[in-house]
Amino acid sequence: MVKDNATPENLAKATTEEIKRINPLIPMKAKVTKIIEETPDVKTFYISKEENGQMVVPFHTAPGQLAMLSLPGVGEAMFSATDAPDHLQLSIKKVGTLTDELHEIVPGQTVGIRGPYGNGFPMDQIKGKNVLFIAGGIGLAPVRTAVRYCVDHRDDFAKLHLVYGSRSPADLVFQYDLFETWPAVRDFQVSVTVDRGDDNWKGNVGFVPAFLEELKPNPDNTVCIICGPPIMIKFTLGILDKLGFTAENVITTLEMRMKCGIGKCGRCNIGSCYICLDGPVFTLAEMKKMPNEY
């Protein structure tokens, strides 16, 4: 009785059969099939599950959605996941106990994974528009999910422009995408900057907000997707405002301490929003209505 009454519109939106699992807190058993060392403290983990002797993607995620990864005996945490045909990619920076341990594992390791969680980027609503991606550091991981979607559906979007910055050339993540894949895509401008260069760095040196101000992207018919450290976001938003971007056209993704991922544990609320259900993607206009507590 109770269950029947409780079917909400969110459940109807569910993209995979996994979301209807009886017990959403039980992870499915999966394996790490590949590990890419992006930077000294960021690694990308390819995660697949075994089904009829084949390694398949545990579940599909839309751009900007999240997956909960757990290491038995250590803990679990939420990461943004990039969808691929036979695996999920989770790019993880070393910041605490769980991520430290994750950085020690080798391919073949069993992990638990559950999801997908969150609303994801509103790619349908962006269709036909120019997209400006702005990312700092590991913030490129969620932004990349949207970039990949745009690249995969190149004809659905007008001009693409990525502005990305990291502390140093060694800290640039997804270098194969930044310097090989994406520059080859039609009408895709990739602008990379670093806070401090080194002997081999020939690109721009400077912080993202200043770089953006130099680049002067056109706000007309453009949606901006931004993610990065809070301090970068804070200053970049000022520049975007100056450039003429409206709050409705700036989209970001928020990080909170999510535990259950399913809107029950109460830990990821900002005001009456639960990041794991109502977020993590919000427009700047929506965020302005929330309590300033993120």
């Binding site: 109770v2 269950k3 009454n5 969110n10 017990n23 959403p24 029950k264």
Partner: peptide, 15 residues
């Protein structure tokens, strides 16, 4: 009930 039985997911334990 509102928390555990509505809004997308049902908490199996509570339910």
């Amino acid at each position: 009930d509102d928390v555990f039985l509505t809004r997308g997911y049902i908490d199996e334990y509570y339910a």
